[in-house]
């Protein structure tokens, strides 16, 4: 029987209260969102927090809205809520692509967008999605709020820039016309973590790539990104050949490691192929030829 070690439990009633509790209990305290990464880690004693601060009551962090040209996702939005969101799916279909293959529907009822980002597991799908979308994280602490681009949010496996007395409150993505996006993942079986996955957000001007964002999951890409492939595509014709070449560049720069999900060369192959497929699909969506 797997049981977490003993800990104290507190319930936050507001974001400010959560921050105050983090201050009071110090670095051995942890925020508890959906608990679907943290509780399994505590059962295995990979995490042994002395205090858990439950933020599930903070309804203010549960909203999805379009404000000032930005899509704003509260940190406590559940995977299932993001998947069902009409406004998120309309502007960024890659959210739906990704959510459909994140864990399983039951886990998606509990796991949160903020927990996903803060867990900073190299296999986390939303990290690559937000990287492709150049999202911005809003973090609150004692001294108020600060914003950090998601591309600077992760400082290593399981490590983020969120400080000991800070809480991620929101993720923002700017909405621009002329875009399309897609996310493609290969998994061993339904509900599993990615063998590899790639996301692409593309903005077209005529038949040229005006701007592009790429994100890679589970292949050891620095900050989940593929900046060299983005650089190659920006300003180039949005052609099949260029998408394939961008995939090749992305594959060349990532550093997958062999594990039970597959050998290195297979994952590298997937990184390239899935990048090209996501680009193709994102382009079709930008041209209004695919939902």
């Amino acid at each position: 029987m797997q049981v977490p070690a003993q800990f104290e439990y507190e319930r936050a009633t507001s974001v400010a209260h959560a921050v105050a509790l983090l201050q009071r209990y110090g670095p051995e305290s942890r925020l508890l969102a959906g608990g679907h990464s943290l509780i399994p880690m505590m059962k295995l004693r990979l995490a042994n927090p002395e205090t858990l601060i439950d933020i599930n009551g903070l309804d203010e962090l549960r909203t999805i809205s379009l404000e000032g040209g930005e899509l704003r996702l509260g940190a406590l939005v559940r995977h299932a809520e993001l998947m069902a969101s009409a406004v998120a799916g309309e502007h960024f279909p890659m959210f739906r692509d990704a959510e459909r293959v994140i864990a399983d529907p039951v886990v998606r009822n509990r796991g949160t967008v903020g927990g996903s980002l803060c867990q900073a597991d190299p296999n986390e799908d939303l990290s690559a999605v937000f990287t492709a979308l150049r999202a911005v994280a809003v973090i609150e602490g004692v001294d108020g709020r600060r914003t950090v681009p998601v591309r600077e949010f992760h400082v290593g496996p399981y490590q983020t820039v969120v400080g000991d007395t800070e809480i991620l409150v929101e993720i923002r993505v700017s909405v621009r016309p002329g875009g399309g996006s897609a996310y493609t993942k290969v998994e061993r079986r339904a509900g599993d973590w990615a063998v590899a996955a790639a996301g692409a957000a593309l903005w077209l001007e005529g038949e040229r790539v005006a701007d592009v964002g790429l994100g890679l999951t589970a292949v050891g890409a620095d900050h989940f990104g593929a900046p060299q492939a983005e650089e190659f595509l920006r300003g180039a014709p949005a052609t099949e050949e260029n998408f394939a070449e961008a995939g090749r560049i992305a594959a060349e720069h990532c550093r997958p490691v062999a594990d039970q999900r597959g050998p290195e060369d297979y994952k590298r192959h997937l990184a390239g192929e899935l990048t090209a497929r996501s680009l193709r699909r994102a382009a079709a969506r930008a041209r209004g030829r695919e939902a």
Binding site: Y9, L32, G35, I39, P40, L52, V106, N109, R110
Partner: peptide
């Protein structure tokens, strides 16, 4: 998923939810 119960009407894996939650 053998531990699934409905929590506020939605399926949840009760081995990964604290009773206090």
């Amino acid at each position: 998923g053998v531990c699934v119960v409905l929590l506020d009407g939605l399926p949840a894996k009760s081995c990964t939810v604290l009773a206090v939650m």
